[in-house]
Design a protein around this nucleic acid. Structure first.
Length: 299
DNA sequence: AAGACGGGGGT
DNA sequence: ACCCCAGTCTT
């Protein structure tokens, strides 16, 4: 025996510590409960695309009670999915989730696919969601990288206060490099890294005082240096934006349960040019359709 | 690579 | 006011 026993690598230490922390500190979220089901996981992940956890929880329960399987949603008019999405934001997701249900019902015998490439081929399922479903619903080992994970890796591993702009190939490789090889450990670590970013290693004011991996954090070790990279573009104001107009029109189209004429749309937004632009956008997205009676939600 | 796409809550 | 949120798709 010529070699000394290898000391635990930093990654192993990180995994062990974070997973142990997760096992007792994790929030009790619905989609983490045993037997939640792949369809429920998929719906939750789509809802969680840019909508905060606390707002998703009650709406997810409504959806799954109403549409317990992909076939149930697939058999429903698109208009009902759009109405049931109200308030969650980015309503195109409702349309894509409906299309996703149709695709699963027709092409996958009503079973949520397990293969990442098959998941990626579904409407509204991108790099994050495909791997989240494969990892959390089926327990397979895939790097799951969301905004929380990117921030945790940037700080803990790279010593940067903020992640670089998203790059799927690079981000997935970075997570894969620290992901343990065992399926169960990998599944837990994906969730644990996300959880750390969501409740401890937060974007605005990280709670390093309660962080379980503070003593192995490269950013902390470096003295919390300020982020030197390019700032993210400031997002446009929502008040008065085209987005607000779209939301206003769509909400009304869903509320009245009948087609609305162009004249009936006028009082909803005084600026005609902006109103027309928003309406055209809704039509282009398939969130609204034109009939002989006027504008309405798609069937 | 950059921009569009909701809407609410925290700071 | 500004930032952020378990992103995806299009150009």
């Amino acid at each position: 025996m010529s070699t000394v026993a290898a000391l635990p690598r930093d990654e192993d230490d990180l995994v062990r510590t974070l997973n142990e922390w997760f096992r007792h500190a994790a929030r009790d979220l619905p989609w983490r409960r045993a037997g939640f089901g792949a369809w429920g996981i998929l719906v939750s992940e789509v809802m969680l695309q840019q909508t905060p956890v606390v707002r998703v929880i009650p709406r997810l329960a409504e959806w799954l009670e109403r549409w317990p399987t992909p076939a149930d949603l697939a058999a429903t008019p698109q208009s009902e999915a759009i109405r049931a999405w109200a308030g969650l934001g980015y309503p195109r997701r409702a349309l894509r989730l409906h299309a996703c249900a149709v695709a699963i019902a027709e092409r996958h015998d009503g079973i949520v696919p397990r293969d990442v490439d098959e998941l990626l081929a579904l409407p509204g399922i991108g790099d994050y969601t495909a791997r989240a479903v494969a990892a959390f619903a089926y327990g397979d080992r895939h790097p799951v990288v969301d905004t929380n994970v990117r921030r945790v890796l940037a700080r803990c591993i790279d010593g940067q206060g903020e992640p670089a702009p998203p790059n799927a190939r690079r981000d997935l490789a970075a997570m894969d490099a620290v992901l343990p090889h065992g399926r169960e450990e990998a599944r837990v670590f994906n969730a644990a890294a996300m959880e750390l970013g969501a409740v401890v290693c937060t974007a605005r004011s990280p709670r390093c005082d309660v962080c379980p991996v503070a003593d192995m954090c490269a950013w902390r070790a470096a003295g919390h240096p300020a982020y030197l990279g390019a700032k993210r573009a400031v997002q446009k104001k929502y008040e008065g934006s085209d987005r607000q107009v779209r939301g206003t029109l769509l909400r009304e189209l869903g509320a009245v349960h009948r087609p609305l004429s162009a004249e009936e749309l006028e009082p909803l937004w005084p600026d005609a040019a902006q109103r027309d632009r928003a309406l055209a956008g809704l039509l282009a997205d398939g969130l609204a359709v034109t009939t002989d009676e006027g504008y309405t939600l798609p069937q």
